[in-house]
Design a protein around this nucleic acid. Sequence first.
DNA 1: CGCAGTCGTAACAGTGAATGTTGCAACAGC
DNA 2: GCTGTTGCAACATTCACTGTTACGACTGCG
Lengths: 144, 144
Amino acid sequence: MSANSRLTIAAHALAWIGLYQRQGHEVATSEQIATSANTNPVVIRRLLGELRRAGLVESRRGVGAGWSLARELESITLLDVYEAVEPGPLFAMHRTTPDQGCVVGRGIQPTMQGIYEGIEETLRHELARVTLENVLRDVLAAPR
Amino acid sequence: MSANSRLTIAAHALAWIGLYQRQGHEVATSEQIATSANTNPVVIRRLLGELRRAGLVESRRGVGAGWSLARELESITLLDVYEAVEPGPLFAMHRTTPDQGCVVGRGIQPTMQGIYEGIEETLRHELARVTLENVLRDVLAAPR
DNA sequence: CGCAGTCGTAACAGTGAATGTTGCAACAGC
DNA sequence: GCTGTTGCAACATTCACTGTTACGACTGCG
């Protein structure tokens, strides 16, 4: 399928902010996070903007501006992040409506929709089991 | 995320061939399936070609040519179809390597990789629970 | 008050995958 | 040979994500 890396980058940013704050800093800038993630600051600002709308982070403007966590890492799960940055469903239906004069064409969409909903529910459950605290701890446990 | 419809179309095609064969026909043409799915026959041939490589269907050429199931619908699961038509992983890593001089940049990829692998394993398990026979039965159970 | 640093956001180019389309060679039964 | 269908290459189209530039908005500080 080759999906997008939005969830990965968002988790990276949150872990980075969390660690930075534990080192005594108040706010992190999109510039710093972009350097760590090796991407453009605007990409980070866009992603963090979505996380802010979801109530996961806060931003401050003006001099000494930047980003800070709105909730503890322990209370943020990958599901929170996933829902904040991934809008659509995992699997898509036909791009055009199937032939409604055909039995299969008529019934296939409700059928697949039902199956997909169940699968996405399972996916959400799995994502909810991992907190950003888990992620950061695992990151810091890496060799060296 | 807005994924692709390959799995949906592939399931549609298999269900269509299965039903058609139960109605007494030997083979189904990509033209017929494309009409039901409201798409181009070449799109169907490409998808069915991947399913053939996975051993799920067979094709016959020449006059009276077309496609037939290589296995019973009962023995084909959505996981078989998924693996045949979806190449890549569900979630992607960073497009460019994160800053290896940063603790988070160094540890984030192995961490996320591990999490994603567990989730994909769960996804596979869910897909394996649904057979194409289940799909066809549900399609035919639709009202009208 | 003006300066400086950072966010907020629009606008646009670049990239890549899936999809749609056309065309034609290969094949096989009649 | 004729016909119908697959197999496959080549290309256009679409669409989302990513990357980049630009600039206004905001705010603390001197």
